[in-house]
Nucleic acid binder design. Structure first.
Length: 630
DNA sequence: ACGATCACG
DNA sequence: ACGTACGTGATCGTG
């Protein structure tokens, strides 16, 4: 057996690396040593646990003073047996390791998950900010540097350097580094020692600020979301391959057009700006750093297209602007979506995106590899790639105007609460309240925009720019809005004052503390509203599992849940899921809309059924009717 | 590494 | 006194 030593916070720690059977006695003695909680971590060949060829290489156990780094090619059963002991473990970013051992060691998520603590969750509850936002961040290294040892090694960075020294890269290093490389073993061991020490610090801090209850909730929730990640979502591979090929062809055709106007690379904003100006267009908008702006907002009007890509018929379309827009969109969809889907699929053609249960500063969830919360919604072609399991149908339920309802509840806005209770369309109600019975669609859109402005903390100028409405009209609308709903402004001011004179944070109804930036106190309202809406969906997920409906769930998307059910039961199941999502929050009904989509996710976005499936080469309309036209 | 861009709620 | 659009993930070009 090899043993390495290291210094952590002034004391010497040992890292044991068993090489033969007999060395395992020491590991067993360690397990029997009376530690209440043992830290655990894994090292594998990459981040994507479900892609073919992924392997687990190391399984590490440790306490504050020693680590045991087990090679899983030799000691997989020993590691699995240790994890199956009915005792608590602590991990940093537990869902990743839980899914890894579920897949590779046969230690079930349902068994280990409920007795696992996660130092990342504790770190988020104490301060959710990323380093760029003035926080510590949620990685093991910075948290350890603050709470354990300022000189704690950056094991990730150290390993990257070792990869380079060996002629490996970040992409090849995790699989290619020799399993007994000293730096690799040392850092693998240090990670569990740091995690254990971090837990000893953060656990009591979370308890002291009264967040044990929230911590328990988040630990439970993230295991449920890990179950969704393990389940994955079935991919229609032949469809994606055809889609990819079509998009690539489309992108190439428009790139050729752009080249005729002197643009070699449509992704170069400098080239596009220069070529457009050479064609006689005047470009006035600038980016934050002073470059000429040529984003979608600038190019669409030049191509005589609305924000929804419909012909405006107000000018002669600029063919270069049109070609740049179309080639970039086709290329983005081909690479960011179709390619990524094919890269990340498992051997059974399923995708297992990483679901961050507690991610954003507001605790919003995120989905990555691939980013399934960000698929195009104005066109069904990308979502069509995801299909229900055989015999099942895709279903979904989304909250109706959840952020406005949360705002009405928290700010206690009587007129809004009455309108919600009466089942009124909220934006139409506001339009009638201000403009009288003669209000028009334009008014509804205007006041809907003002409502969003309230939720986001935006002002008249931004709102006018976003909606394209006249600035003076927007100013008048905001003033009228404040007259009929004075409680919203009062609520926002109160939050800002409290943040200015007390702690610079807002506290949500769930007890979550959200730090505010010194010069952006106005974001307080948005943080509480966004975070509370997230907590409502999180509670719904917990309730759906408790009601025995968890097997149906596929994905959370901010204010909706995507699921599947046997085709004959689809309507009934989504009604039940929808009911489980509903609640009364501060006297305000939080309601959901259940919907049966069809064979694919795209069927909820206007995919036309032809012989039982959507056909990508068919032309499709720009608008999908009322269901998603808001 | 960072800015610009674009996809979503 | 006034006004401030919120939160993500991913790719690409540039230096």
């Amino acid at each position: 057996m090899r043993t390495l030593t290291h210094t952590v916070a002034g004391s010497t720690v040992g890292i044991h690396f068993p090489e033969r059977r007999a060395d395992i006695d020491g590991f067993r003695a360690f397990l029997a040593g009376g530690d209440k909680v043992i830290a655990f971590d894994t090292e594998g060949t990459g981040l994507d646990v479900y892609t073919p060829g992924h392997r687990l290489r190391l399984a590490q156990f440790g306490n504050a003073r020693e680590a045991w780094v087990l090679r899983t090619d030799l000691f997989a059963e020993e590691a699995a047996a240790a994890l199956r002991q009915p005792r608590p473990f602590v991990m940093h970013n537990a869902p990743f390791d839980l899914l890894t051992v579920d897949r590779h060691l046969g230690v079930r998520l349902e068994d280990l998950g409920p007795r696992t603590y996660d130092t990342r969750v504790l770190g988020h509850l104490l301060d959710p900010r990323a380093p760029q936002e003035g926080g510590i961040g949620l990685s093991l290294k910075p948290l350890s540097a603050v709470y354990v040892d300022p000189d704690a090694p950056d094991t990730q960075e150290g390993l990257t350097a070792e990869f380079r020294r060996l002629g490996l890269t970040k992409a090849t290093g995790w699989a290619g580094i020799p399993i007994d490389n000293e730096t690799y073993v040392r850092y693998a061991g240090l990670d569990v020692i740091l995690t254990h020490r971090l837990f000893s610090e953060l656990g009591p801090m979370v308890r002291e600020i009264g967040l044990d209850h929230l911590s328990k909730f988040e630990h439970h929730l993230q295991v449920l979301l890990a179950i969704l990640q393990r389940r994955g979502f079935r991919l229609d591979v032949p469809y994606v391959e055809a889609l990819r090929s079509d998009l690539m062809t489309e992108a190439e055709a428009f790139r050729r057009t752009a080249r005729r106007y002197g643009v070699e690379n449509v992704n170069s904003t400098a080239q596009v700006a220069a070529a457009l100006e050479a064609m006689g267009e005047t470009l006035t908008e600038r980016t934050a750093s002073g470059a000429t702006k040529v984003d979608k907002g600038v190019l669409l009007p030049l191509a005589d297209l609305s924000l929804g890509w419909e012909r405006l018929d107000v000018r002669t379309p600029n063919p270069l602007a049109d070609a740049v827009l179309r080639s970039k969109r086709a290329e983005k969809w081909a690479t960011a979506y179709a390619d990524a889907f094919l890269m990340l699929k498992d051997a059974d053609d399923r995708l297992h995106p990483s679901i961050g249960a507690l991610q954003a500063r507001t605790a919003r969830m995120s989905i990555s590899r691939p980013p399934l919360q960000q698929l195009p919604s104005s066109d069904w072609r990308v979502r069509r790639a995801f299909v229900a399991d055989p015999g099942q149908t895709i279903i979904a339920a989304d909250y109706q105007a959840v952020e406005m309802r949360v705002l009405a509840a928290l700010a206690d806005v009587p007129k809004m609460k009455d309108a919600i209770a009466a089942g009124e369309d909220l934006h139409g109600f506001t339009a009638r309240l201000i403009e009288g019975d003669a209000f028009t669609k334009y008014h509804r859109k205007l006041y809907k925009g003002v409502g969003f402005g309230k939720v986001y903390g935006g002002g008249a100028v931004t709102l006018a720019r976003q909606t394209g409405a006249d600035l003076e009209a927007v100013k008048r609308a905001i003033a009228a809005y404040d007259r009929v709903y004075p409680e919203i402004k009062r609520y926002s001011r109160r939050l800002m004052e409290r943040a200015e004179f007390g702690r610079r944070e807002v506290v949500t109804p769930s007890g979550r503390h959200l730090p505010l930036d010194r010069d952006r106190l106005y974001a307080a309202t948005n943080y509480v509203v966004q975070s509370t809406a997230r907590d409502l969906l999180a509670q719904a997920i917990v309730d759906i599992f408790a009601a025995g409906l968890g097997d149906h769930l596929l994905l959370p998307v901010h204010d909706e849940l995507i699921a599947q059910a046997p085709t004959g039961d689809a309507e009934e199941v989504i009604r039940e899921i929808g009911r489980a999502m509903e609640s009364t929050f501060y006297g305000v009904r939080i309601e959901s809309d259940p919907d049966v989509y069809g064979a694919s996710w795209g069927h909820g976005y206007g995919c036309q059924v032809t012989n039982g499936s959507c056909v990508i080469r068919e032309s499709h309309p720009q608008k999908w009717g009322v269901a998603h036209a808001n």
